[in-house]
């Protein structure tokens, strides 16, 4: 189970938008196998009907009322952007439609 092929690792890197070098791919493949070997042991725990714990608090139904609050100052927001144009964030061309 815990074998990660170079192809699988490349696929993961693509999903995660990480450009990895061959050297990095080799290093991570080895390290991930070691880590996965050590985490594999949780699969031995019989937890069939246990409820998954996705939160540390038992809160439910936390909402806000539908009230408008002030937005940020546009100039301050755009001042942090790598590129802007016409008060919008400028981004490189997009090849794939969503």
């Amino acid at each position: 189970m815990s074998k990660i092929t170079p192809e699988a690792l490349k696929h993961l890197a693509k999903l995660a938008r990480l450009e990895l070098t061959e050297a990095e791919l080799a290093m991570y493949a080895t390290q991930l196998e070691i880590i996965l070997d050590s985490v594999d042991k949780i699969r031995e725990v019989a937890a069939g009907d246990v409820k998954p714990m996705s939160h540390a608090v038992g809160l439910t139904n936390v909402f806000r009322e539908d009230v408008i609050r002030p937005s940020l100052d546009r100039a301050e927001v755009l001042s942090q952007a790598p590129a802007t144009e016409a008060n919008r964030f400028r981004v490189p061309r997009i090849l794939n439609e969503d």
Binding site: R43, V45, P52
Partner: peptide, 9 residues
């Protein structure tokens, strides 16, 4: 999924 269950335990 399994990790969340064991977290519950």
């Amino acid at each position: 999924g399994q990790a969340q269950k064991v977290r519950g335990l």
